[in-house]
């Protein structure tokens, strides 16, 4: 993109040939491409921390905190689990993420079906109840849930299940929104056609409706998982004595910040990018085979 515009810039562009005189030189070029320059700078701003994380993962920190570059080393990549507390916390985060995603996806999909496919009263009230968890500040939800758990089961019993309950609570709304948009965009005649061909309601649902909504449900589940695994504020209020990965990172700022955290941060990015790349290639291969 950049090179393309670079080469065409000095010549008077045919499309938007205004009366302005086009000057040459880098400053004149930048002025004519303000939008491109701003976009480029914002992208640098957005991607810089990821670059820094990857860079710092190869650092051998001088002190306890891996904040400044000292010297190159592969130590952190060779044994990413040198701190067992960290890997325990990652395990806990993954477990909570999976359980919360499954529960939130089931509950949210059911609500989405009811909202799109059925008419009933109190619809606006239900919409408000679904909207509020997305709009309420996280601290408030965390603090109020903490109070509820304190008073009912006591701080000692808080841990995996209280965190999971909280995560399901704030993921449901996102699942509903995602599945609803998929359901609303679906062609209702397909289901009618299935019923015309003597499919039972169950068959229609399993063979027609579900496969058509599946991408929406999948996207919703991914979103829920991403939100759950990255949540800090609500988690810290509901965690009791357990420690999830975000809580471990937050605590590390006070204790010691090993390069291993940057390794995990890089792995999260590279892993997801690899998954996207593979699925893109598979999609293209499938498309090519169909032709």
């Amino acid at each position: 993109m950049a090179t393309q515009t670079l080469s065409t810039a000095p010549a008077p562009a045919g499309g938007d040939a205004h009366l302005k005189v086009r000057r040459r030189g880098p400053i004149a070029w930048a002025r004519q491409h303000v939008l491109l320059v701003v976009t480029f700078l914002v992208f640098v701003f957005m991607l810089l921390p990821n670059g820094v994380i990857l860079w710092m993962s190869f650092n051998s920190p001088e002190g306890k905190f891996n904040y400044t570059w000292h010297k190159f080393s592969l130590d952190a990549w060779k044994n990413p689990c040198s701190s067992s507390t960290m890997c325990h916390s990652i395990g806990l985060s993954l477990e909570i993420g999976v359980v919360a995603t499954i529960l939130a996806t089931i509950l949210g999909t059911m609500i989405a079906f009811a909202m799109v496919r059925h008419r009933f009263r109190a619809r606006s009230g239900i919409n408000a109840l679904l909207f509020l968890p997305m709009a309420a500040p996280e601290v408030v939800m965390g603090a109020t849930l903490a109070a509820l758990f304190f008073n009912t089961i006591g701080p000692g019993a808080m841990g995996f299940w209280t965190i999971t309950i909280a995560h399901v609570m704030f993921c449901i709304s996102y699942v509903v929104v995602t599945v609803k948009s998929r359901l609303a965009g679906m062609d209702p005649t397909l289901e009618r056609a299935a019923q015309d061909l003597y499919a039972t309601p169950t068959q229609t649902f399993m063979k027609v409706t579900l496969p058509l909504v599946a991408p929406g449900i999948g996207a919703a589940a991914l979103l829920a998982f991403a939100i759950s695994i990255d949540d800090y504020i609500i988690t810290v209020f509901t965690a009791g004595n357990s420690e999830t990965f975000p809580m471990y990172i937050f605590g590390s700022v006070q204790r010691a910040y090993p390069a291993q955290i940057d390794v995990i941060g890089s792995l999260m990015l590279l892993g997801t990018m690899a998954v996207i790349a593979v699925s893109q290639v598979l999609n293209q291969m499938r498309a090519a085979r169909k032709k």
Binding site: M46, L47, L48, P49, N50, V52, I53, M56, Y67, A226, I229, D230, Y232, F245, P246, I249, F250, V253, Y257, I261, D262, I264, G265, S266, M268, L269, G271, T272, M273
Partner: peptide
């Protein structure tokens, strides 16, 4: 893409 990495690690960066 950046949000695939935990926001805490990115903030600390």
């Amino acid at each position: 893409v950046p949000s695939f990495t935990s926001f805490l690690i990115r903030t600390i960066a």
